[in-house]
Nucleic acid binder design. Sequence first.
RNA 1: GGACGGGUGGGUGAGUGGCUAAAACCAGCAGACUGUAAAUCUGCCGCUCCUUGCGGGCUACGGAGGUUCGAAUCCUCCCCCGUCCA
Length: 375
Amino acid sequence: MAFYFEVLKTDPSGARLGRLTTPHGVIDTPAFMPVGTAATVKGMTQEMLEGLGVQVLLCNTYHLYLRPGHEAIRRLGGLHRFMSWPHAILTDSGGYQVFSLADLRKVTDEGVRFRSHLDGSEHFLTPEKAVEVQLALGSDIQMVLDECIEYPASHEHARHAAARTRDWARRSRDYLAAHGGASQQMQFGIVQGGAYADLRRQSADQMIELDFPGYAVGGLAVGEPHTLTCEMTAEVTARLPAERPRYLMGVGKPEDLADYVRHGIDMMDCVLPTRNARNGCLFTSQGRVLIKNACYAEDPGPVDESCRCLVCRRYSRAYLRHLFMANEILAAVLNTHHNLYFYLDIMRKIRDAILFGDLAGFSSELQARFEAGSP
RNA sequence: GGACGGGUGGGUGAGUGGCUAAAACCAGCAGACUGUAAAUCUGCCGCUCCUUGCGGGCUACGGAGGUUCGAAUCCUCCCCCGUCCA
């Protein structure tokens, strides 16, 4: 079996230490997946990512379908070879673009009509098409097309989106099976339901009924309070089968990662470490450092005293600020490197904490540090 | 020496009588960023006062005068800068 998920240890909190085996390597869970939307984690080379210990990347169906085109990538030997990433890849379905490109699309039961953000051309993304594109890309894990909605949203709207997501999930599953893809790629169903517990439970049950090899919780972290994100997540994970991986999509802030894990989450992804890095926001053990702040102009110290990453070991805040202010490309590279290291380091510590039975302690320590504010 | 052109807030540079503390961009200061339309976006950006308000006062478009109810904008002289001619 090319895919294999095992839970090695379960914490009393519900946190799980696990291992997801894919044709392109093992993923130690709980795992954080850097976002490489357009087949690149902006600013990072694949070698750098490997050096950081990244085991799985997230890439995007919608973006790669538009450019360079999934067929081109197929002809070039698939996404792994195309982007020279021999490790695991999870592809998102384009469901998030239903949310983020709300002005450029129209959703119907059949699918989503997008007007390309690149050239205005029209494209119709159906659940089947999303599966087809992801098959062409050859990712290890593919996501079903879902309808991610905004927060706040009415119960009615959330119910409709969840129902549509369920229908799309069924179509996605069937399409993959009909094309013999189920043995090549793991397909995750996505639970929706907005901020409504009853809808979340219902959506979870429906996804379980469809019997996916893995499940995702989508439509969260779109503006709602963190406690609500946790509540919704808990509603879902309480019902999901223990032996299958759970992926909370699009989270989160560093200080919140352990909370999600404690609610039974195995996988997460987020643009925060990479995007914020490019915008000059560095995550540290003492809180956020906005490196462009004037107070760092002549600060010879490292970004984070207690960080062991290459950037913190070698460069000063003053230098990083200079690079940022001067609009140097290296600023994005170094900042991204640090932030990803920071995230992956937290995940490492989380896994250790589960192993040693002290996740609660680690979690509150994380929260406390961030509440203390910026250094 | 002469002829043109030009001197605007930290910079570039709009603005040719009131709607102008003065466009826009840059620089600077601060903030945001959660399955990436993001190396993006937002706010502030003369000084000052307070009852922080589409609030008051002061200063400001090379300098000094003047015209006008009102001038960065018109007039006079002066000082600088550029180009060209001697």
